[in-house]
Design a binder for these strands. Structure first.
Length: 633
DNA sequence: AAGACATTAAACATTT
DNA sequence: CAAATGTTTAATGTCT
């Protein structure tokens, strides 16, 4: 039964550092989330409550803030994404405000009527009638709001969120506590019941009352998640009017969360209230517990929920990252301690076990001698370095586990900074370097640069690995040297390259899988990718064309849905969506069939050359200047 | 246990 | 000539 992974304080903190925006909304929850943790899964030896704490402590020690930042920036949410999110929210707020104003007027009139009637005789029945009228307005308003919300949600989804059907809003309570006064808590409950039900279940509108009508609906087609962002599953705002009966209008407002700096903090309302009294007055009059407020509240809840989900995911991811990093090397340079492989063990649980002291010495971890790996079907690809190819399995992977790396981008970043030997063969790396270049050809020196740029590990022992690179270039037929005006450049003969792959990795399906996942998206992009895919996919599949990318997307979409990971969509190409059947290997598009003799044919590369892949990246260029390496050896 | 590959190291050969 | 590039050969390890 598990409780998903629990959030960890430290993670939250880290996130905050980077994402100030989110912080605002999350602050409250964060504290409560910690306390809200329950059922600490099996933690080896610590009491449940300690878990989060211990983890919190560990982080800072293990990873430097800079590192974390880098990681977070790339992985979790790009600043752009954040901005988008923020903007959207703001937009929503504005809209709400406008609507409110409009609505306010309407209401005022009604209120007047109400008052009159009340005056006459406090007849609840009459009120009800009036209320009915109000409902008409409210209904409209709600509809509009819902539409807005839906829009927002869909946007969010596109940009960075996925709401998991299976994951009911995390800690609801905290949420309520954090920002909703007592009276609203009731409201919350009401809403929640229906809300959660729908969130989790899908749509059962059974409980809807007024507004429900328009919104929601649309059976969430999983496939559409990615492809049609508009059909947002969560879009269903399932408005079920809480016809709440009695609410304690006695807001024990001590320090009201809705009041601050002399302004009403009700979403979309910024009414200025001189003092607390006037605020209360305002609150009662303008934000009485009516349908409008309810709707607003709901919206807010959604927002919060979204954020919470996001946070949860990010946390999880962060956890995985930390675990991963913790395992491999604590810090880029001089990593005396052999890192503990500990954590990696169970990603899911990582949190709990992330033992307290991240100190160098491995804690009594049970799973001592484990290789750093994740459990599931992990992948190796890297965003930019889409799949490098054959993995160099050596000491480590006896345990058949492929290599960790939840996120590609991660890896890349990771290798860039950590002096960890990349698990790929020289040949693969060289090929990767070449294919990544706009011209698909590099001079030896450029290859060197790529190595040093992409891998911290290769910033040492230059003589050694450079020799290896040279050796590989000469040794393997797949690398073809092409004379050039100002020298010679190296290119890759994909056919040749593939020729020798077969027996190698064939055994590892997961790898294959991985590779492909990345294709789907970038297919059109550059041949390089395709080539890389081909490489992995092994000759066997080569021919099998996957035809429509739709499938790919679909598959990944579903996949995503399951995993619920998809925020970093923006990385132009590539995307790490694990999963995909091996048979869908995409075959290299331009690949020429016949292996020509590398001997005198300078054109072996014909396969690749064609691609005029977008020069989007010139990044290669800028490295020449910097002598980076050399120094050391 | 053998064979295929990788990685390293190093001797040479060629170019720049 | 020195350094950068390329080629080769060999020893050693890792897998399958």
């Amino acid at each position: 039964m598990g409780g998903e992974r629990k959030g960890n304080v430290h993670q939250v903190k880290t996130l905050q550092a980077l994402q100030v925006a989110r912080q605002l909304l999350l602050q409250q929850q964060q504290q409560q989330q910690v306390s809200g943790l329950k059922s600490p899964k099996r933690n080896d030896k610590q009491p449940a409550l300690q878990v989060p704490v211990s983890v919190a402590m560990m982080t800072p020690q293990v990873i430097t803030p800079q590192q974390m930042q880098q990681i977070l920036q790339q992985q979790v949410l790009s600043p752009q994404q954040l901005q988008v999110l923020l903007q959207q929210q703001q937009a929503l707020m504005l809209q709400q405000q406008q609507l409110q104003e409009f609505y306010k007027k309407q209401q005022e009139q009604l209120q007047l009527q109400l008052l009159q009637q009340q005056h006459a005789g406090k007849q609840p029945k009459e009120q009800q009638q009036v209320a009915t009228q109000q409902l008409a307005f409210q209904q409209q308003l709600l509809q509009m709001q819902q539409l807005q919300q839906q829009h927002l949600l869909s946007l969010q989804r596109q940009g960075l969120l996925t709401i998991q059907p299976g994951q009911p809003a995390l800690p609801l309570q905290p949420l309520a506590q954090g920002m909703i006064p007592a009276e609203l808590q009731q409201l919350w409950k009401e809403v929640t019941s229906a809300h959660t039900a729908e969130e989790t279940t899908g749509n059962n509108h059974s409980s809807l009352d007024l507004t429900t009508t328009c919104v929601s609906s649309s059976a969430p087609s999983k496939t559409s998640l990615i492809m049609n962002p508009h059909a947002s599953t969560n879009g269903q705002l399932s408005v079920h009017t809480p016809k709440r009966e009695s609410l304690s209008h006695e807001e024990h407002s001590h320090s009201h969360p809705l009041y601050g700096h002399g302004v009403c903090k009700w979403p979309g309302c910024e009414a200025v209230c001189e003092d607390f009294q006037s605020f209360l007055k305002h609150l009662n009059s303008e934000h009485a517990l009516d349908d409008r407020s309810t709707a607003q509240c709901r919206v807010q809840m959604q927002v919060v929920q979204q954020l919470e989900l996001q946070l949860a995911k990010d946390k999880e991811r962060l956890q995985a990252m930390m675990t991963h990093l913790h395992v491999k090397s604590t810090e880029p340079k001089a990593a005396p301690q052999p890192l503990n492989l500990v954590s990696s063990v169970t990603l899911s649980k990582s949190a709990s076990e992330a033992s307290p002291q991240s100190l160098p010495h491995t804690p009594t971890t049970p799973t001592a001698p484990i290789t750093p790996v994740t459990q599931g079907p992990s992948v190796i690809t890297t965003t930019s370095m889409h799949t490098v190819g054959p993995i160099r399995r050596r000491y480590s992977d006896k345990y058949n586990v492929p290599i960790s790396s939840a996120d590609i981008a991660q890896n890349q970043e990771f290798y860039k900074n950590a002096e960890v030997r990349p698990p790929f063969t020289y040949a693969s790396l060289i090929r990767q370097a070449i294919l990544e270049s706009p011209e698909k050809q590099l001079t030896l020196n450029e290859i060197y640069n790529w190595f040093t740029r992409m891998f911290a590990y290769f910033r040492r022992n230059a003589a050694t690995w450079k020799n290896a690179v040279r050796h590989n270039l000469s040794l393997h037929k797949c690398f073809v040297r092409v004379e050039n005006v100002k020298g010679a450049v190296w290119t890759v003969d994909e056919v040749e390259f593939q020729k020798r792959r077969p027996q190698k990795i064939s055994g590892n399906p997961s790898l294959i899988k991985n590779m492909q996942s990345s294709h789907a998206y970038c297919t059109p992009l550059n041949a390089a990718l395709q080539a890389s895919m081909a490489e992995n996919s092994i000759p066997l599949y080569t021919t099998a064309s996957m035809g429509n990318p739709t499938l790919g997307n679909l598959a990944s979409a579903i996949r995503e849905e399951l995993n619920g990971a998809m925020e970093h969509t923006n990385s132009n190409e590539s995307d790490s969506s694990p999963g995909r059947s091996p048979m869908q290997a995409v075959h290299p598009v331009h690949v020429k069939e016949e292996p020509l003799d590398p001997e005198e044919a300078e054109g072996p590369l014909s396969l690749v050359t064609t691609a005029n892949h977008s020069p989007d990246f010139d990044h290669d260029r800028d490295y020449e200047d910097e002598p980076v390496n050399e120094d050391m050896e």
